[in-house]
Design a binder for these strands. Structure first.
Lengths: 344, 344
DNA sequence: TATGGTTGCACAATCGATTGTGCAGTCTCG
DNA sequence: CGAGACTGCACAATCGATTGTGCAACCATA
C-alpha cells in the first residue's frame, strides 16, 4: 500500500523507524552485518520503508556513488527497424543488469549525434552504444580515450582503434554478385546508399571485386543513388532503367532502395523477376509476403546487437576495453523469387 | 580544444578563474545581472570553463534543482514499428525542449511496465508517456494522482480519469465491417488480438454492432486468436478456415495477424482475394508491395504521437493537467487489393 | 573493580551544483 | 567628514544518499 513514493526520503524512513539515516541506509542496503546493525533494527527500518513506499533517489545515489546506472544509446533513426531492433536488444540486456537506457535520435546528422553524446556524458552515463551517422568519428574517439565504455555498431570506420561491430558488408556484396552472375547476369546496376559511409563503400568494393574476378566490370554509370531511402532507390532505378537498356539486374543496398526499384519497374512495365532481377542488402520481415518475394543478403541483426551488448557489459564488469576492436558478423543470402536467370 | 570533460567540476573552473563556486555558477548561468557579477569576472569564468571543457554534472543539478530534465517512455515492444514510431515522435519533441528520454521495454508484461515506471520515478523523471500493456491501470492512476504529467497512448481504459490518446477503434472496425458487407460478405471471421485489452474489445464491439445493424451477427465460433502476433494470426486463421467452410472474409486485428492469415490461406490453396478477402487493422509501409496488397484500416500514428507530445508538453509548461482526458484520433480505410466481392 | 573487547548505533563529511545572506570596499551627498 | 546606498563577491546551507570514524553501553575476564 505504498503511499506517494514522491519525496519520501531516507530521512523520513529513519525518523519513522527512530534511527539515524546512516543506520537506515545500511539496513536497507544489506550492510547490516558489516556495520553491526541488529536484526531487530533492520526489521523496523524495512517496515518503515515499505510502509512509506520509500524509493531511494537515484539522483542522489548517482551523485554520491558516481554510478548513474545509465547506458546511452544513440541511433540515426529509431523508427528504422534495423536500429529499433538493435535498440531493443541493448535495452533488454541493460534492464537485466539493472541499468536504465537513455535514447537519442541523431536524425542522420553528426551534429545531433554529438549533442546527444555531450548530454549523455553530462548525465554521467556509464556506457554508450552508438550507431554512428558514419561520416565523422573524432568525437567518438575522444570519448573512448576518456575511458568510457563505448561500442559502435553498423556504420564504422575501417581501420581504427574504436571498438566496433559490423556486418561483413564486402563479403555480403560479393555473395550478391556471385548469385547474380550464376544466373547469367552480365549487366548489373547498383542502387547505392549514402556514398560517404563505410558500409556503402565496402559493399561497392566487394561487389566490384567479385565482378572483376569474373571478368566483368562495374562502370560508374551503372551506379546510382545517394542514400538508403525508398525515394533514392526509386530515382536511381529510374535513371538506370531509362539510360541502360542492356541492364538485367539491380543490386539494391537497402530494402527501401529495393522497394523504390520495384516501384520504378512497375511504372515501366518491367516485370520482376522475368525482365529484371533484384537483390537487396538487408532483409525485411515482410520480404516474403511481397508480390515477388525479395531475394536478400540479410544482416544478422540479432548477432550484431548481442555482440555489442557483450562487449559493453564486459567492459562494464572488468573495466577493461576488449582485446579485439573490430568485430565482424557474417551475413546470409536468402534466396526468394526476385532473382532468376537472365534473359539474353 | 576541450580537455577531458570528465570530472571537471564547477570548483575547478572557479579556482582557475580565481573566484568562488557561487560566482562561477552565476556567471555561467546568466545570473550575472541579478547577482551583480562584473562583466570582467563573467568573461574570466567563461574562458576558464571553456578551456577546461566544463560540463556541469546533470546529476548534481538534478538533485539541487529537483529538475531531472528527463522524460520517460515505456512501450510494450520497441522493435514494433507502431511503438518505435511513437517513441521517435516523443523523442524528437523532447530533444527540442532540452529533455533527455529514458526508454523502457515492458515486453508486453504489466509487471515489467511497473518496474520501469518505478525506476523512472526514482530517477525523478518529469513526465511519462506510456503505451500500456493494457490489462492493469492502477499503478498508472496512482502516478497521475501524484501530479506527475502522464499521457497514455494506444491501449487505454475506457472511462477513466487517465489522460489518454487512442485511435477510434470502434469506428474503424465499423468501417471495416461496412467495407466487407458492401462487397457482399456475409460470413466473416475475426482474427482478434489480445482479448483483455480495450482496443481489442472496442474493435470487436464496433464490428459486431455494425454487423447487427445490417441484420448479420458475429457468433463466437467466428472469433479466434489470442494476441497481435503473426503466429496467433496463423493459428486462428487455420482454425477458422478449417472449421468454417462458408467463410468468405477475415478481419485481422493487426497486420502481423493478417500475415499469419495469408500464410494459412496459402497453405490451404485459398487464393486471396478471389476465394478469401482479408482486411487488417493497422497499416504497414510494406502493405502495398505485397503479393496482394492489403486493404487496411490505418491508424494515424503521427497524429497519435503528436497529440501525446502536445499534452505532455503542455502539462510541463503550465503545470496543469489537460481539461479533456480522452483524446480520440480518427482512422482511415486504405483500399488496396485484398478485399473483393464475395463469391456466392 | 578496573581493563579491554564487543555491540549497536549516531555524527559529520562528501558527491557537485545552486542560492539566500552577509560583508567588505567604494561611491555619493548633505 | 560621516551616514547610507551600491557594487562585487564569498560563505555556508541545501538537495538525498553513502560511509569512515567516534562513542556510549554492555559484557567478560582477571
Amino acid at each position: 500500500m505504498a503511499a506517494e513514493s514522491f519525496s519520501v526520503t531516507l530521512q523520513d524512513v529513519a525518523s519513522a523507524a527512530g534511527v539515524s539515516t546512516s543506520t537506515a541506509s545500511r539496513a536497507l542496503n544489506g550492510r547490516a552485518d558489516t556495520y553491526r546493525i541488529s536484526p531487530h533494527t533492520v526489521e523496523r527500518v524495512q517496515q518503515a520503508a515499505s510502509k512509506l513506499g520509500f524509493q531511494p533517489s537515484q539522483t542522489a545515489r548517482s551523485l554520491r556513488l558516481k554510478r548513474s546506472g545509465l547506458i546511452g544509446v544513440v541511433v540515426p533513426d529509431i523508427a528504422n527497424p534495423f536500429f529499433s531492433a538493435i535498440t531493443r536488444i541493448v535495452t533488454l540486456a541493460a534492464e537485466a543488469e539493472q541499468y536504465s537506457v537513455l535514447i537519442g535520435d541523431s536524425r542522420e546528422a553528426t551534429e545531433h549525434e554529438e549533442r546527444h553524446l555531450q548530454q549523455f556524458l553530462a548525465r554521467q552515463v556509464e556506457a554508450l552504444v552508438v550507431c554512428p551517422v558514419g561520416i565523422e568519428f573524432s568525437h567518438l574517439e575522444s570519448i573512448q580515450r576518456s575511458g568510457l565504455p563505448l561500442v559502435l555498431v553498423d556504420r564504422c570506420p575501417g581501420p581504427s582503434s574504436l571498438v566496433r561491430v559490423t556486418s561483413d558488408h564486402s563479403g555480403g556484396a560479393a555473395q550478391a554478385a556471385r548469385l547474380l552472375i550464376q544466373q547469367g547476369h552480365r549487366h548489373i546496376g547498383v542502387l547505392q546508399g549514402l556514398p560517404g559511409t563505410l558500409p556503402n563503400q565496402l559493399r561497392l568494393e566487394g561487389f566490384r571485386q567479385q565482378l572483376e574476378q569474373t571478368g566483368l566490370s562495374l562502370p560508374d554509370e551503372m551506379i546510382a543513388g545517394d542514400n538508403f531511402t525508398e525515394t533514392s532507390g526509386y530515382q536511381a532505378a529510374c535513371r538506370l532503367l531509362d539510360e541502360q537498356p542492356q541492364l538485367t539486374a539491380l543490386f539494391a543496398f537497402s530494402t527501401p532502395n529495393a522497394f523504390g526499384a520495384l516501384r520504378a519497374a512497375r511504372e515501366r512495365n518491367r516485370s520482376v523477376p522475368d525482365e529484371l532481377s533484384i537483390i537487396a542488402f538487408d532483409d525485411s520481415p515482410h520480404a516474403s509476403f511481397m508480390a515477388t518475394p525479395l531475394t536478400t543478403i540479410a544482416q544478422d541483426i540479432d548477432a550484431l546487437g548481442t555482440r555489442a551488448v557483450e562487449l559493453i557489459m564486459n567492459q562494464l564488469k572488468t573495466g577493461k576495453p576488449p582485446g579485439r576492436t573490430k568485430h565482424q558478423i557474417g551475413v546470409t543470402a536468402i534466396q526468394r523469387a526476385s532473382v532468376t536467370k537472365a534473359k539474353l
